[in-house]
Design a protein around this nucleic acid. Structure first.
Lengths: 227, 227
DNA sequence: CTAATAGTGTCTCTTAGACACTATAAA
DNA sequence: TTTATAGTGTCTAAGAGACACTATTAG
C-alpha cells in the first residue's frame, strides 16, 4: 500500500424508470472485496483506449452493462482513504439515463433495483447513488432532462408521468403542456397515434432534430402542485 | 509511460476581486514541464495526510498560496491523454473564493492576474479556468456566493459591486436591496458606519451567524437590468 | 455649495399555478 | 353505456424589474 498515487476508477449510476418507479442498474461484483454483492458498475481507465474521462465512462458503461446511453454526465469525484478497504482510492462518478426499452437490452449480469429499495451498497456507493438521484431530481425541475427517459416516440402523458416520477410529486396537466409547448423541444409525429388502449388515442411526439444533446432549460416549476 | 493507473492531482482556481475586476491567482511553476510559466496552483494527494479530496484541496491551497479560503468547492474532474505532455493524467479541479484582504496575504510566489487578461496557460488550465468562471458567474445569479468575496464587515454598496463584477452587468439598487433583505442573510453591525469618504456614510453589515457555509439560494434574477 | 454615495416605495407586467369540462376509443 | 385517458382556456396571485428623489458627509 505504498503507491504514491492512488488508484482511479470510474463508477456509473445508471437510471431508468420501470413500472413507474425509478430504478438503478447494479452488477454483481466478481472479485474481492465484496465479491458477489451488487454494486454500481465501474472500471479502470484504459490509457491505451480512452482519450478522456468521458470516453472511458462510455466504454465502461458499454462493457459492463451492454447499454449505450444517450445521456451521460460527470457527477462528482469521490476520493479518500476510507471508501475502499484496500486503501486510498479515487472514483470519478458519472450518471446515465436510459429509457425502459434500452434497459431491457442490458446484460444478464445486470440487475435493476428500485432506488428506494436499495439500502446498502459496497464502498461508498450508497452515497454516490444518493448524489446522483439528487442531481437528477434537481435538474428535472428546471430542464428537459427527463425526455432522455423516453423512447423515440412518446405521448405527452407518458412524458408527464416520467417527470412526476423524477420530481416526486404530481404535476398540473395543463401547466405541464404549456411549458413543453414553450420549450419548443418536441414535434408531433404526423399520424402517429396510440391505439388499442380502450380510451381516446394520444398524439405521439418525438424530440426535435438537434434539440437533444443540450438540455432545454427553463425557470419554471413545471406546474408542480403545492404540498 | 506504462503506469497502469494515471497520475492524479488537484488543481485550484482561486478567485478574488481586486480594483473592481475579477482576478485569478497563479503560481510560477518550479519544474518541467512548463517550468517558469504561470499556472494554476496544484499538487498531488498525500495519502498519509489527506483523508479525502476536500482535505487535500484545503492543504494544497494553503501550502501553495498561503491562503485559507472559507469557500472551496469541487468543480469538475479533467482527465485524458492530451492534457499533459507526460501522458495520461487526472486533475480534480476545485475553485475557491477569497476577499481582497486575504488576497493580499498570499505568498510572494503568488501572482494575481485579471481573468480577462489571461490568454494562455499550461496544460488545459485555460479550460479549467474557463469552467470555474462560468460556474461562479452562474451561481452568482441565484445564490449568495458573492458574499464570500466580502471581508467581515461591508456595505451593501460594496456587496452590490461584487455581484456586478461576477454577473457582468449592472444591477438595480432597490431590487438588489430588496432581495438581500428577503434572503435574511445579513445583519446590520450596530453603530458601524463608513466614514471619511466625502459623502453620506453607509451602514455596515456582516453575515448572520451560521448563515455562511451553505449558500442562500433564490430564484430571482437579482434585479439585473435588461440588455 | 458641490460632489459623491446612501437610502427609500410603488407601480406594472410577466409568469406560474389553479381549476373543469368535452372528446374519443375499446370493451 | 361505461371506463379511461387526451386535449383544451382563463383567471388570479406573486414576484421581478423599472423608475426618481431626498439624505448625509467631506472638502
Amino acid at each position: 500500500m505504498k503507491a504514491a498515487t492512488p488508484v482511479v476508477s470510474i463508477d456509473i449510476v445508471l437510471l431508468t424508470i420501470l413500472d413507474g418507479v425509478l430504478h438503478v442498474g447494479l452488477t454483481k461484483r466478481e472479485r474481492e472485496p465484496f465479491a458477489g454483492q451488487l454494486a454500481l458498475p465501474g472500471g479502470r481507465f484504459d490509457i491505451e483506449k480512452d482519450s478522456d474521462e468521458y470516453d472511458a465512462a462510455v466504454r465502461i458503461l458499454r462493457e459492463k452493462t451492454g447499454v449505450t446511453s444517450p445521456y451521460l454526465e460527470q457527477l462528482q469525484t469521490f476520493a479518500g482513504a476510507n471508501r475502499d478497504p484496500r486503501g486510498w482510492t479515487v472514483s470519478i462518478a458519472h450518471f446515465a439515463i436510459v429509457h425502459a426499452k434500452v434497459a431491457d437490452t442490458a446484460d444478464a449480469r445486470f440487475t435493476w433495483r428500485p432506488v428506494e429499495s436499495v439500502r446498502t451498497l459496497p464502498f461508498d456507493h450508497a452515497r454516490i447513488l444518493q448524489a446522483a438521484v439528487t442531481r437528477v431530481r434537481t435538474k428535472s425541475l428546471y430542464s428537459s432532462l427527463p425526455v432522455h427517459l423516453m423512447p423515440e416516440m412518446f405521448t405527452l402523458g407518458q412524458l408527464q408521468a416520467a417527470y412526476e416520477v423524477l420530481v416526486g410529486s404530481p404535476l398540473d396537466k395543463r401547466s405541464f403542456r404549456r411549458r413543453m409547448d414553450e420549450l419548443e423541444l418536441l414535434v408531433e409525429v404526423p399520424g402517429a397515434v396510440t391505439t388499442g388502449s380502450g380510451h381516446r388515442p394520444a398524439q405521439q411526439y418525438r424530440v426535435k432534430d438537434g434539440a437533444l444533446g443540450h438540455l432545454a432549460v427553463s425557470d419554471s416549476n413545471l406546474g408542480r402542485k403545492a404540498a
